[in-house]
């Protein structure tokens, strides 16, 4: 059928449909009305989050994340926690009531903006401990699965969760410096559509998400911005041929070593020096985040940081772009 046609079966008849609808309305009323905000609280997965983690908190306090192995430019080691911060984190672990945890101020603006990873991981450490299944229910082995974007030469290791790929794998530790609150920007359990009520703070998140993907995910998962470089809609895999040699494996540096030299990597969620260093030897270091892992079909409008020798004439495509990153992302801002 085409989906637009009225159904021809018995279920399409209005009287039957009304009966079905009434049944589900009654069921919905029974399930949701008594305590609509507590439905998730009874989810088995949610219940265990807070109650099982007290031992992990101690680890989080006394054993900060291991220093990146083989990082070309090792990011600064996290400063040791002062007594007050350590006590605050330890206190988080003692919250054994799910509702109390859910309504903890740390989940709301403005506290979430300054939350440290240690604070988040005090209760949510399982996000880094969770592993993918060895085999799918039908027997597909994780170790023998490779996605198209995992053919980039920056990919190493086996399949892992997206949390691990963003925070704890060697590549993530080398080139990224993501904090939990880069993506998880707050959550108000009162509202299903965040910041829609008169009393809420605009958290900048979108429906059913704790983040606005256009302002975060799109930075590294957007389309190759060939149009602004004058390549029209040609993909990089069609352009790179001839730009790369064994001695200079990264074709991006043909133009972006000196001629077009922005400073946009100098943001607090990336390890700029490590990216520069990796880019000299790996052909996909730049492309990986500039089209190589494009889940989204548009490009991120990066700020156009000026560089020495930059043409003072602003091209048409850059006319409305900012000339520096958002204040919270500037290098040096914690």
């Amino acid at each position: 059928m085409s989906g637009g046609q009225e159904p021809k079966s018995v279920f399409g008849r209005n009287d039957v449909r009304a009966g079905i609808a009434f049944g589900y309305v009654a069921l919905a009323a029974f399930v949701f009305w008594p305590a609509s905000t507590t439905v998730n609280a009874t989810a088995p997965g949610a219940q265990t989050v807070v109650t099982q983690k007290s031992t992990q908190v101690a680890q989080a306090v006394t054993a900060p994340a291991a220093a990146p192995a083989a990082a070309v430019a090792t990011p600064a080691a996290p400063a040791p926690l002062d007594k007050e911060a350590a006590a605050a984190i330890a206190a988080l672990a003692k919250i054994s009531d799910y509702q109390k945890a859910r309504w903890h101020p740390l989940h709301f603006k403005p506290a979430i903006d300054t939350a440290s990873n240690d604070q988040c991981l005090a209760c949510h450490k399982e996000v880094l401990d969770t592993k993918v299944r060895d085999k799918s229910p039908a027997g597909v082995a994780a170790a023998q699965s490779v996605a198209w974007y995992q053919t980039l030469d920056t990919f190493e290791g086996g399949q892992d969760t997206f949390h691990a790929r963003h925070m704890s794998t060697p590549f993530a530790k080398t080139v990224m410096n993501l904090k939990c609150n880069f993506c998880h920007q707050g959550n108000d359990p009162r509202e299903e559509a965040q910041h829609s009520s008169a009393t809420s703070v605009n958290a900048g998140v979108t429906m059913r998400k704790m983040v606005d993907p256009s302002k975060t995910c799109l930075m590294c998962h957007g389309k190759f911005p060939g149009v602004v470089m004058g390549f029209e809609d040609q993909p990089w895999h069609a352009l790179r041929e001839g730009m790369e040699t064994p001695d200079a494996p990264n074709g991006c540096l043909s133009c972006h070593a000196d001629q077009f030299r922005t400073e946009r990597h100098k943001v607090n969620y990336l390890n700029a020096a490590a990216i520069e260093s990796e880019a000299k030897t790996k052909s996909d270091t730049c492309f990986g985040c500039h089209g190589g892992r494009a889940w989204y079909r548009n490009s991120y409008p990066y700020p156009r940081h000026p560089w020495p020798g930059m043409d003072p004439v602003v091209p048409e495509w850059a006319k409305n772009r900012p000339t520096q990153s958002a204040a919270e992302h500037l290098a040096g801002v914690k």
């Binding site: 060895d134 799918s136 229910p137 969760t161 993907p213 998962h221």
Partner: peptide
């Protein structure tokens, strides 16, 4: 989605801008 092929990496869940993919915790898919 054929969830019988899912290994539970949850990348789809993170990537969807509309929060559609749902994690089933007891099966890790």
């Amino acid at each position: 989605i054929d969830s019988s092929l899912c290994i539970g990496c949850r990348r789809c869940e993170a990537a969807c801008p509309f929060g559609a993919p749902q994690f089933i915790p007891d099966q890790n898919i």
